[in-house]
Nucleic acid binder design. Structure first.
Length: 928
RNA sequence: GGGGGUAUAGCUCAGUUGGUUAGAGCGUCUGCUUGACAUGCAGAAGGUCGCAGAUUCGAAUUCUGCUACUCCCACCA
């Protein structure tokens, strides 16, 4: 055993112990600390972790998202980049506040009985207790974040920057206050942005009713609604100005049923002629469209609801105090009793739900702060010009569509947990008079005369600064050494769900705030201001039925439990290899088990390498040192083949990384290691390991493969790769695999050549012929249920002298791999022994009777039929003059060669089939 | 209503710019405790590449239409 292999590899791989050990060592050695290198800006590589909510618990989506980030950052670290992965958490206004309010309610306490200051303190307290859990859980996954830089969106510095951007945007004219229709959540009691409203199809009732025309008693117009409870808020009915049916009624009035009142009939183009009766009841206080119509026609705005969704006094005695949905039933009853209800029809429509509270939002008129987005054109250009690349690219369209239709952003929330809006109003003054507003981070000098706005900012109005404020940015135009070095960051890894809520807004924030104030930006300025260069959208992790993971469905596995059972590396490998590019993932434990199995396989292969010994005493910490152990004269064709495959796999993986193609990455790891290295190369070279003369060279080839493979594997499976790298002595005791860059394919070939091993492509080709021959021979045996026997006699009728020499030289190898006691070269026996064509000639299995002749004949006929079909197709193609004239020569030659091959195999099969039809010869087997 | 996405083996997915007989993992079947590994090995079965056209010498791949499922956006009450 080599001296540098100082520890024996245990029999079974125990991920828990290995993971805990290495994570601690990495932390102790400060492996994840990002150190800027101002002199070499090209070394910068940064990823900002999408900050999880402090209320969040680790779920499958986090596992995938953070695995991808960790893979990218570890890869960068190996390549010698100054790699920064910055973690943090989001204060998550509504979610956190509701969570704590719920706790308080258990003790009969509300935020109002507690008061603002104490309540915020209580929430902060809860956050301090629970908010860090999710990041600690990520450590179990192996996340290599620079934990010393952990940021929270309510940290004092971060908060300052949030307030400062509000003030700046106000000064630049992008922020205004207005009485507008907003999406009101009657449970959270706050306004919401459009992006926080989820449309859901709803089974509703469409009420068709009639309103009497004031000027024409006993004449009615029919009106449809799904919300009769809002009738008391009606202040008009509207028709389309081009609708001839109602033209004579415009300017007249109808009776609102309850409370009974005269309301005008107006004409407005927003009304669809063809929908329902073409008459719309207008409730300006409770519908966005109606509000717009009301504004144009100067209609009264009658708010008949309380903030909590109950009806108020204006709704009339029968409805007042009722919940909006109960009021709907009562209102319908009232219509019926008044004889105004024509019909109730089942109806499916889309209703907006509050994302957090999951109740229908109520369009509600209220005073809110809005942002008119700056730099919208530049934000589009950043993506259309490819300054920011989206992966997969198709999200471009979604992103641009949003920007093309973007509405002003309602940023005030009627909550207490968050960044309090930095605006003070002069007492007893008109709040809409700018002169009576003090907008600044610092309160006015005479605070007793002012009142601060009670609202806080939308959480996303803080997280849109994530790429800036995490790097010490405090105010627009700021630069810091950290910003200069790491900004723009390299990749953002996130879910497409938040492309509007977060991604687009971060881009806008970067463009507006990073650099001096400018109205428009050049391409170069865009390049300098964007927050990230790439966005990788990972899919959503769903269950096997395609449903989102959720607590209430109980379909979400416990990630820490999975890590304990499969190992972090196993999960990472499993998740990454099943994640289709840009598609959602259907998660099932069964589907990630191969990740764990692969780790086990690797462990055992390493163990086999170590148990195979070797007399090397020199350290083997580089490719060159390992290559130096090879005696080129002892390299066989299999060595050439596996080393060639290693270089090819390396190149494939490098290309895959550049394209964020993780499918190819994991598939290549699997193909190379399992199929090429373990199942073929190790097996085929075992004899050479047992031979003193060849052992060192064979082991050196193992080591080159294992070392390079571990380096390539490390980003996705950091723990096991580090452990084995050390156990196999590929680095010093105090080194880490993260600091070692895998050689490129070309560099591997060059280093080998320097040490006398120039990959021989003929040898590589020979190996693939041998593999095919072995597989065919095994199949031949297996069909006779002799797969496990090692005493079979094989008779090869070589197709030419080269084939004979080839097989003869490898006779021992073939016998061992196929499981045969003899390999005889001879003409085919004349009786009905099973046989098969192979690349080297016809191979016959010498059986002593008892073969299933019928089954074998059937198989041969099927195979013959298949070949005949292929030959027919091939002939047709080659008989086509157009093909002969237009196909490239290489394709043509290929087609001809293929046909020749098919024909010879067909002839051989036909001969074998014919021989099976003869009665068996009485002597049994024939031999030369 | 508008815009995406997907459709390939029983299941989940690969399939690079069109090119020789469409691949993998899981599952299934058969055999095997082979001196690293049963979380394994060997072998096998299994596909009209959603449907219909078009382009081409040649289409899973490009184009058109259709169908099914799915996601996002949207002010039809």
């Amino acid at each position: 055993m080599p001296e540098n292999v100082s520890h024996e590899i245990p029999k079974t791989y125990e991920p828990q112990a290995v993971e805990a050990h290495w994570y601690q060592r990495w932390i102790d050695a400060d492996c994840f600390r990002a150190v800027l290198d101002a002199a070499r800006p090209e070394r910068a590589f940064a990823i900002m972790m999408p900050p999880p909510n402090v209320t969040g618990v680790l779920h499958m989506g986090h596992l995938l998202n953070n695995t991808i980030q960790d893979v990218l950052v570890r890869r960068a670290r190996q390549k010698g980049m100054a790699a920064l992965w910055l973690p943090g958490t989001d204060h998550a206004g509504i979610a956190t506040q509701s969570r704590v309010e719920k706790e308080l309610r258990k003790n009969g306490v509300t935020r109002h009985t507690l008061g603002r200051e104490k309540f915020v303190a209580a929430v902060a307290d809860w956050r301090d207790k629970h908010g860090g859990i999710i990041l600690d859980q990520l450590k179990k996954l192996g996340a290599s974040c620079d934990w010393s830089r952990k940021i929270h969106t309510l940290d004092p510095d971060y908060s300052q920057s949030v307030l400062q951007t509000f003030v700046t945007l106000y000064q630049r004219g992008y922020i205004y206050r207005g009485r507008r229709m907003v999406n009101w959540c009657p449970v959270s009691l706050t306004g919401l942005s459009d992006e926080e409203v989820i449309m859901k199809p709803q089974r509703s009732v469409f009420y068709r009713m009639r309103y009497e025309i004031v000027e024409h008693p006993n004449e009615f117009v029919e009106i449809g609604t799904t919300r009769p409870e809002t009738i008391p808020g009606d202040t008009a009915v509207a028709v389309n100005p081009a609708d001839t049916r109602y033209a004579h009624l415009i300017g007249k009035h109808v009776w609102r049923p309850f409370p009974r009142a005269k309301i005008p009939i107006v004409a407005d183009p927003l009304v669809e002629k063809d929908f329902g009766s073409g008459v719309l009841k207008v409730t300006p206080a409770h519908d966005k469209v109606d509000f717009e119509i009301g504004r144009r026609h100067k209609l009264e705005v009658l708010d008949v609801m309380n903030p909590d969704g109950t009806m108020n006094a204006l709704a009339g005695d029968d409805l007042a105090g009722l919940d909006r949905f109960d009021a709907r039933t009562v209102a319908a009853e009232k219509l019926r009793s008044l004889g105004l209800l024509i019909k109730e029809e089942p109806y499916e429509n889309n209703v907006g739900y509050s994302e957090r509270a999951d109740v229908p939002v109520e369009p509600r008129l209220s005073e809110q702060w809005f942002i008119r987005y700056p730099k919208v054109e530049e934000a589009k250009r950043a993506v259309t010009e490819g300054v920011i690349c989206l992966h997969p690219e198709r999200w471009k369209k979604v992103y641009l569509h949003w920007l093309n239709n973007v509405q002003d952003w309602c940023i005030s929330r009627q909550l207490w947990w968050g960044h309090r809006i930095p605006v003070w109003y002069k007492k007893d003054a008109d709040r809409n008079d700018p002169a009576a507003c003090h907008v600044a981070i610092e309160p006015p000098a005479d605070p007793e005369n002012w009142e601060q706005d009670t609202d806080v900012l939308d959480t996303w109005a803080s997280s849109w600064l994530w790429c800036l404020s995490t790097l010490g940015w405090q105010k627009p135009g700021d630069t810091t050494p950290e910003l200069n070095f790491w900004y723009p960051t390299s990749v953002l890894v996130t879910a497409p769900e938040i492309i509007f809520l977060w991604v687009a807004r971060m881009i806008i924030a970067g463009l507006e705030f990073h650099g001096p104030e400018k109205n428009t930006l050049t391409d170069a300025e865009i390049r300098a201001r964007i927050p990230f260069q790439n966005v990788y959208f990972n899919g959503i992790v769903r269950d096997t039925q395609g449903r989102k993971m959720s607590k209430s469905l109980g379909n979400s596995p416990e990630p820490l439990d999975l890590i304990a059972r499969f190992g972090a590396d196993g999960i990472r490998l499993g998740l990454l290899s099943i994640a289709p590019k840009g598609q959602d993932i259907l998660f099932d434990e069964e589907r990630i088990a191969p990740g764990r199995n692969f780790c086990n396989k690797l462990w055992n292969a390493a163990r086999f390498r170590q148990m195979s010994g070797g007399k090397n005493t020199t350290p083997a910490t580089s490719l060159a040192a390992l290559a130096a152990r090879i005696n080129p004269a002892l390299c066989d064709a299999n060595d050439h083949a596996i080393l060639s495959a290693l270089a090819a796999a390396t190149d494939t993986i490098n290309t895959a990384f550049d394209a964020f193609d993780f499918n190819t990455y994991t598939a290549t790891l699997h193909q190379f290691f399992r199929t090429d290295f373990c199942d073929w190369h190790i097996e085929v070279s075992k004899a050479r390991i047992q031979n003193d003369a060849t052992r060192d060279t064979a082991l050196a080839v193992y080591d080159i493969c294992l070392r390079q493979f571990l380096l390539l594997l490390h980003p996705v499976a950091p723990f096991i790769s580090e452990e084995l790298f050390h156990l196999l002595g590929y680095c010093g005791e105090n080194d880490f695999i993260q600091n070692i860059c895998p050689d490129s394919g070309e560099s591997i070939l060059q280093t080998l050549a320097t040490h006398g091993v120039t990959i021989d492509q003929c040898a590589v080709a020979d190996t693939s012929v041998l593999r095919e021959f072995i597989t065919t021979a095994r199949a031949l045996k297996s069909r006779q249920n002799l797969g496990a026997r090692k005493d079979s006699r094989l008779i090869l009728t070589p197709k030419d002298t080269h084939a004979q020499a080839f097989a003869s030289a490898r006779s021992d190898m073939i016998k061992k791999l196929v499981g045969a006691s003899e390999l005889i070269f001879s003409d085919p026996p004349t009786d009905n022994n099973p046989a098969t064509p192979t690349p080297l000639g016809t191979l016959t299995l010498d059986t002593t009777g008892n073969i299933d002749t019928a089954a074998e004949k059937k198989r041969l006929s099927n195979e013959l039929q298949r070949l005949d079909n292929l030959i027919a197709a091939s002939n047709t193609k080659l008989a086509n003059p157009a093909f002969l004239a237009k196909a490239p020569p290489a394709i043509l030659a290929g087609a001809r060669a293929q046909l020749a091959d098919l024909l010879s195999r067909r002839d051989e099969l036909a001969r074998l089939l014919a021989s099976m039809n003869r009665p068996p010869s009485p002597e049994g087997t024939t031999a030369p």
